[in-house]
């Protein structure tokens, strides 16, 4: 029997070994914090782990009772509605502005890097600062930026962040206009990746920028659009910061994830919160799969 030649073996597999050694740390972290947490969370969602009752009643298996309850829970459904509105608005706003800015940047012959850096600036501002801006703009007194502007026309101050009709819209305004930066960068990279030859060939047939965009840019940008829409969907569906920081416990702005947070950490109903989390997971997964299937059918790469 021939012994293993370690040197030869190492030489043959050294690249694989290096790769897997580098991957070992993230795999372990992923296993502990995501895979383990995911399965454990699912187990919890099947129990009655609600600290308001469980110490007195004891731990019990309740099956899918919490899942059925999630779809009857007014607060969660209300949160889901607001989350959906938020996601759709941000998806359209951030991607629309992002694409517009990226196209504009591509048209610039000079100063492109300067404007690119300038337009990326909002992405560097923390969520806490954005919330403060929202609070200053929609401050309910006469000193609020919007109210003081409206007072010029004799319109009395309005409590924008509390009123049922305006609360969610008020929260969305600042992120709607400032959340495009990352999308813009991705679109910009995508636009740069489209070979110039396509445009040169198209310019022989038409001078119309709209036609070129519709027949060349948009189809070839398909994978980038897919990525940005997917990112927007996930970002939107897990929104919590503006609701929690600006309008805590407000019925009119409650998001699904914030409702989940309240159920877990304030109401101590951990099992129910886990069930809400899994419902959100399934919703996001289904949306992603649908989007993936749609994208595969319509986008032509070459």
């Amino acid at each position: 029997m021939k012994g293993i030649d370690i040197k030869k073996w190492y030489h043959k597999y050294r690249n694989d070994l290096k790769c897997y050694l580098l991957l070992l740390v993230p795999i372990c972290l992923f296993s502990v914090f995501f895979v383990y947490g995911f399965v454990r969370g699912f187990v919890f969602s099947l129990l009655n782990y609600d600290l308001r009752f469980v110490m007195l009643e004891g731990l019990q298996f309740v099956g899918f009772e919490h899942y059925a309850e999630v779809f009857r829970d007014k607060d969660f459904l209300n949160g889901l509605l607001h989350t959906t509105i938020w996601t759709v608005v941000m998806l359209i706003g951030n991607n629309g502005f992002g694409l517009l800015m990226a196209v504009c940047l591509m048209k610039l012959s000079r100063g492109r890097k300067f404007f690119l850096a300038g337009l990326y600036w909002p992405a560097l501002v923390s969520a806490a600062i954005t919330t403060q801006i929202t609070l200053y703009v929609f401050n309910p007194t006469e000193t609020g930026i919007l109210n003081s502007f409206l007072s010029v026309f004799g319109i009395p101050p309005k409590d924008w962040l509390v009123n049922e009709d305006t609360a969610l819209i008020s929260l969305m305004v600042i992120p709607f206009f400032t959340g495009f930066s990352q999308k813009m960068i991705i679109f910009y990279a995508g636009l740069n990746g489209i070979p110039k030859t396509y445009y040169e060939a198209a310019s022989l047939d038409t001078d119309s920028g709209v036609q070129i965009f519709g027949y060349i840019t948009w189809p070839l940008l398909g994978p980038v659009v897919f990525l940005n829409v997917l990112l927007s969907l996930i970002e939107g569906m897990k929104v919590i910061a503006p609701m929690q920081l600006i309008t805590p416990h407000n019925d009119f702005t409650m998001s699904a994830i914030y409702a989940m947070y309240i159920d877990a950490f304030e109401n101590t109903n951990f099992s129910f919160a886990f069930a809400e989390g899994f419902v959100m997971f399934v919703i996001i997964m289904v949306l992603t799969v649908i989007q993936n299937l749609t994208q595969k059918e319509t986008v032509v790469y070459e």
Binding site: W9, Y13, S31, V32, V39, V43, Y49, M55, L59
Partner: peptide
């Protein structure tokens, strides 16, 4: 070799899955 390492990765993930499912959910001791 690659197969062995891929299997190892799968094993770690499966172990995490099993640990999550099999570990007892206990109430705080009171």
């Amino acid at each position: 070799m690659s197969k062995i390492l891929r299997k190892l990765t799968c094993l770690i993930l499966a172990a995490a899955c099993l640990a999550g499912g099999a570990a007892c959910v206990k109430l705080p001791e009171v």
